[in-house]
């Protein structure tokens, strides 16, 4: 059965994919749907949803919540995507090295990884953002720094089991370079758990960003969902829509990413990887 057919049979995964497509569409169409800055103070503050031309209400400065959510989609994806890519680069490199080289290299890398896992990741992220002062760059870097250890562990395990397989040994006999073998032979075969992991990491990164913003450690120049909840939480009793709608946006996106991740997991690893489906960074 092809990958796609296995994936498509999973109802949850399809729902997740549909939600993601919608959110992506919203991110792309935001400049068309709301052709103005989400920071623009366009009307009366604290308008409930549906009133005064505000689909999802207005915030404490009369800014359009709907516009914020639409424009914020891109930011959330960006934060989630970029930090995941960064974490993957670091995690895959270290994991591949540890798994392929073995011996003291493996030992050293795994000690290093364990060390990072001993520090609560959210606490570390908070400290890092505070040190670098909150900006989009520091947030992405901090999220990446706290998210790579699980990648390393998974990739190392894959490399460990793959490096003794025939096709790798064949390549070694043929005298190919170690790096070439790692990149062209082993990595492609280890991709499926990485892909699954990545989809979940994007979700976690979005949650992390919103938590940082909630504590006042967001980038003040970017309208992200986390920022919107952060600025709306103190007025939740007079304007519930300010934090409820961005909260729903985060919820749906994270949910969708998880559904897709599980679908990918089932489709890529029909037998084995059920329990790897849950990786929380």
């Amino acid at each position: 059965m092809s990958f796609w057919r296995r994936f498509a049979r999973n109802l949850g995964a399809m729902v997740g994919l549909a939600i993601l497509a919608l959110v992506a569409l919203m991110a792309v169409l935001a400049p068309v749907l709301f052709p103005f800055s989400p920071w623009e103070m366009r009307g009366i503050p604290f308008m409930p949803p549906g009133e005064a031309g505000f689909l999802l209400g207005s915030d404490s400065l009369g800014r359009d919540v709907a516009a914020g959510i639409a424009h914020g989609a891109l930011v959330s994806f960006l934060v989630g995507g970029v930090s995941t890519v960064a974490a993957l680069l670091l995690g895959v490199t270290l994991g591949a090295l540890a798994g392929y080289a073995g011996g003291w290299v493996d030992d050293a890398i795994m000690r290093f990884t364990e060390f990072f896992q001993t520090i609560p990741s959210f606490v570390l992220a908070v400290v890092l953002v505070a040190i670098f002062t909150p900006s989009i760059a520091s947030i992405v870097v901090s999220i990446a720094i706290v998210s790579w250890p699980p990648v390393t562990r998974v990739v190392r395990a894959e490399f460990l089991s793959l490096r003794s397989r025939e096709f790798v040994q064949a390549a070694e006999v043929l005298g190919r370079g170690r790096i070439a073998i790692m990149v062209t032979e082993i990595l492609p075969n280890a991709l499926s758990p990485i892909i699954v992991l990545a989809s979940l990491m994007v979700a976690t990164a979005i949650l992390l960003e919103s938590s940082l913003s909630f504590l006042g450690l967001g980038d003040p120049n970017l309208m992200s969902w986390g920022f919107m909840i952060g600025s709306g939480r103190s007025v939740i009793r007079i304007a519930w829509w300010m934090s409820v709608f961005p909260g729903i946006a985060i919820f749906l996106t994270v949910l969708a990413l998880n559904l897709v991740g599980e679908g990918l997991n089932d489709a890529l690893n029909p037998r084995l990887a059920r329990r790897r489906g849950i990786v929380v960074t």
Binding site: A203, L207, S210, S211, F214, G226, I229, R233, I236, S243, V244, G247, I250, F251, L252, V254, L255, N258, L259
Partner: peptide
């Protein structure tokens, strides 16, 4: 389970 997992923790608190 997915719902609780996908919801920001502080947001759950607020709600």
């Amino acid at each position: 389970a997915l719902t609780f997992y996908a919801t920001p923790i502080f947001w759950v608190g607020l709600i």
